[in-house]
Design a binder for these strands. Sequence first.
DNA 1: AGCGTTTCTGCAATCGTTTGCAGTCTATCG
DNA 2: CGATAGACTGCAAACGATTGCAGAAACGCT
Lengths: 360, 360
Amino acid sequence: MSVTLKDVAQAARVSVSTASRALTGTGLTSERTQQRLVRIARELGYRPNPIARGLKTGQSRLVALLVHNLTNASFQVMAEVVQARLKALGYQMLLCIGGDDPQQESDTLTTLVDHRIDGLIVVPTGKNGPQLKALSKDVPIVCLVRRDDATDLETVLADDPQGAYLGTRHLIELGHKRIGLIVGRQDTTSGRERLSGYVRALREAGIARDDTLIHAGHFEPETGATCARKLLDLPRPPSAIFVANHEATLGVLRVTAERNIAIPDDLSLLCYEDMPWFEWHRPAISIVDNGARDLANLAVDRLLHRMDKGNGNDGVREYRVGARLIKRDSCRQIDAQVPAKSAKSKSSSSKSSAAKSAKV
Amino acid sequence: MSVTLKDVAQAARVSVSTASRALTGTGLTSERTQQRLVRIARELGYRPNPIARGLKTGQSRLVALLVHNLTNASFQVMAEVVQARLKALGYQMLLCIGGDDPQQESDTLTTLVDHRIDGLIVVPTGKNGPQLKALSKDVPIVCLVRRDDATDLETVLADDPQGAYLGTRHLIELGHKRIGLIVGRQDTTSGRERLSGYVRALREAGIARDDTLIHAGHFEPETGATCARKLLDLPRPPSAIFVANHEATLGVLRVTAERNIAIPDDLSLLCYEDMPWFEWHRPAISIVDNGARDLANLAVDRLLHRMDKGNGNDGVREYRVGARLIKRDSCRQIDAQVPAKSAKSKSSSSKSSAAKSAKV
DNA sequence: AGCGTTTCTGCAATCGTTTGCAGTCTATCG
DNA sequence: CGATAGACTGCAAACGATTGCAGAAACGCT
């Protein structure tokens, strides 16, 4: 069907091997033949067959990125970054969606190595450590965003302790003393680390940790709703909620809408990780930015390094990418002892506007 | 490195060919050897090498999905649907991001066929018709969401004329007479079709078409902002805006926020295609749903059909997936002749709440 | 027992490359 | 001028599977 190396060789009246050598640019052919073959190849529209090449060389020019989903904005930008970077280097990205499900992850992983991918960037579920470890002998692997504790794979992480600390401190500086935390499962790195950052900020400010204010749960909107309800039903509800579980955000917003809770007047809200619409939301939602773009870039850097410098163990196993606070309008200063409600007279008007659209 | 067919054959003391036949399940081996080989293969952990197989058979078990980006929620769900469906059939999805850029699309396409993908679902830019047409001889291709007019490829489309009609009619039924339309580039199918649906609804209702209310532009938030400004600066601004260009939505929202325009009190807003957060936005945004999930499913159906029933021309070339209206809270009934403003006294309170968060 | 089928198996070629090895040719040097 | 190194080139064997063809074994039939 398509034109093969043999065709090119024939057209140029040389052997296939010479053609191969000329076109792959090993310096083993004379300048003249080299150029002649390149020309002829172009004229004929020759495109090397990566499959055949792969069979011989054991490489595929395919690099896989395995993420949990595409709904998460961070994963979107990561995918786009990875794709762009790889493409520039002649690799194709194989984007896989694992749904944060160990079984799916495991299946996908085997398919991928079957396909002889040249490298893998993975957001691990954390439940397939042994498999990942085994595979990492055949394929360079870099973990992203989460660590898989059962492995010693090179890992690029957001600086979650720092991010959570920054966020919590921001709320504290605004005068909040009772800060609700909705955080991810505690069997994930990010879940634990964000909690620890929160705790640290509290401790530094001399605020006692109150476990009724801390809720950890699965990465789903429904979880966010449940946790928010629990927090708001407390005898002394928090004056601010830090949603450090990205997927939970929508759930929290639903609950505040349902209950006509005005943000930031009745409740300050701070979220982790940006979404494109946070900025346009009313009020615009303040966030701790985990630096998805930087994370992805670094992961690619590390992977490429492994791919051509060899897949060995070299010192560093963990990289951290700094987080930063982006202040928008969902957190407000509260006056020392006064309960959140009677801050400015405005709150009633915003309550009414909330009521308008609460009937979801 | 990994265990090959030869290893299995040796272990079973048969020839490679027998092993191959037994494991691929052609009925050409005896029941006994068949089972024996399957067992041995499992014991040894044999996994067929898709590359080697591909070289011989010309197939890769890879199916590509080429979309513009992943920010668009429709593309997200499509990707997830396609991935799930294909995976169940033993294919790997190659997700590619073309950025709606003809050059990138073209590059990606050639890489993909180089990799001998078994099928392709593509959201075409519309600028690479000839190339697509040529490739479609080698690979089954199904176009999604947009038609490439230079080809006669099988295409799965949203029913945009119908969707735009439905949306516009909804606004008309609410009493709107001046309805602004922000729509996509008129050199895309969807752009043209949505415009035509809008026009049809107007005509049916006996409302004269006013071209100052119609703005077509690129698929970017910035475009949305520009168009929105133009509409709102009109001597007689519209009482409703139909944003039939998904990417433009954020831009429109920005402008309404900047200008403290309350939705739906001062302006009704209807958008095309859902985003996960529309429902939680205040007010929740009414939409015309293009049925992304159905579209993706149908595209996969058609592709699979081509992939095993042959890549020939069979009658139907265009499939339409119905659109439907989802009413939420961003559109309001307006009173016959009275200008939008003085509807209910509420508008002032909502204005103030808008003001609070406008300082983005 | 002899013969024709049917059923199973193995040999070897093939897919399109890459690559070790050996051979050819030219140029250089003594 | 002959020897020899050096620069190119071609042959053929891989890579790991699939598959046409032919031979072998087993079976049924007369």
